[in-house]
């Protein structure tokens, strides 16, 4: 049986006009099971965002196969949604109407839209900011709007590109718990890019370490910590051993420049 998400020999080179081409992905292989929580860590610029964009259907690889549920990914679809690294909020839309963007494009009725957005705005702790514009929000608040927006369309696959990077430590902890709850309840498949090894271990079933650019899958770690996970796990021996192992794998890629 082939995996739910399957990438084989994915190659992607950016060719910006008047500049050197940049190889972002080279022979990139990946298998993700349905309902799995997979984190990806790797050096900055190694092609993590690029890969998520390929999965999202926004970037076309030069060669290689990328399948989702047995079908080749040809373009964007409502079965996937991304929490963007740069937030990507429409500055002329309020928090509420940013959250409702995907629903609007799906043609969902206003009333239902309002219900969904209100529930998610509550979940990410932005009640009272519904009519604020993005420039009136802090970085962490913007990021939470991006999270709510991705969840609004209730996608099967959630692509998260450093979704908690701009959050303060406490909000981050809360959001991690929320994310795990949603993931478990709604049986979503999550691909989670982060630079925080702790976070990757804490959340994931497996953690993939990528090489430096051009990005390749270097090693995959299975995280066999029991679920539901709790905060105390982070101080256990097992957790820290894993952390060290992953860090060692990652360190080579960062230092060997």
């Amino acid at each position: 049986m082939s995996a739910y998400i399957q990438g084989r020999n994915v190659n992607l080179t950016f060719r910006p006009p008047n500049r050197r081409p940049v190889r972002a992905l080279q022979n990139f292989d990946i298998d993700v099971n349905e309902g799995e929580f997979l984190s990806i860590v790797g050096p900055s610029g190694c092609g993590k965002s690029t890969f998520l964009n390929v999965l999202l259907g926004l970037a076309k690889p030069d060669s290689g196969d990328i399948m989702l549920g047995g079908k080749r990914i040809e373009g964007p679809g409502t079965d996937r949604a991304m929490v963007f690294q740069e937030f990507g909020l429409l500055p002329w839309r309020t928090v509420q109407s940013n959250v409702e963007l995907g629903l609007e494009l799906k043609g969902v009725a206003t009333e239902t839209r309002r219900e969904v957005s209100q529930r998610l705005i509550e979940m990410v702790g932005l009640v009272g900011f519904e009519t604020h514009y993005p420039h009136e929000l802090s970085g962490g608040m913007k990021q939470r709007v991006g999270l709510a927006r991705a969840l609004a369309t209730d996608p099967d696959v959630l692509l998260m590109d450093e979704p908690f990077a701009a959050l303060d430590a406490q909000t981050r902890d809360l959001m991690q718990v929320e994310l795990l709850r949603i993931w478990q309840e709604a049986k979503k498949t999550v691909l989670f890019v982060t630079h925080q090894i702790d976070e990757a271990i804490y959340l994931s079933d497996r953690v993939m370490v990528m090489t430096k650019r051009p990005g390749q899958a270097k090693k995959i770690f299975a995280i066999d910590l029991p679920r539901p996970r709790d905060y105390e796990m982070r101080v256990t021996r097992e957790f820290n051993d894993l952390k060290l192992e992953i860090w060692n794998e990652l360190k080579d890629e960062i230092t060997s420049r």
């Binding site: 964007p76 409502t78 990507g88 963007l101 799906k106």
Partner: peptide, 19 residues
């Protein structure tokens, strides 16, 4: 980035222009 965002939600070229 914003174009990509709305495209990712299935926006047509018309939607991209409008939104």
């Amino acid at each position: 980035v914003l174009v990509n965002v709305v495209r990712s939600f299935g926006a047509s070229e018309w939607d991209v222009a409008r939104l």
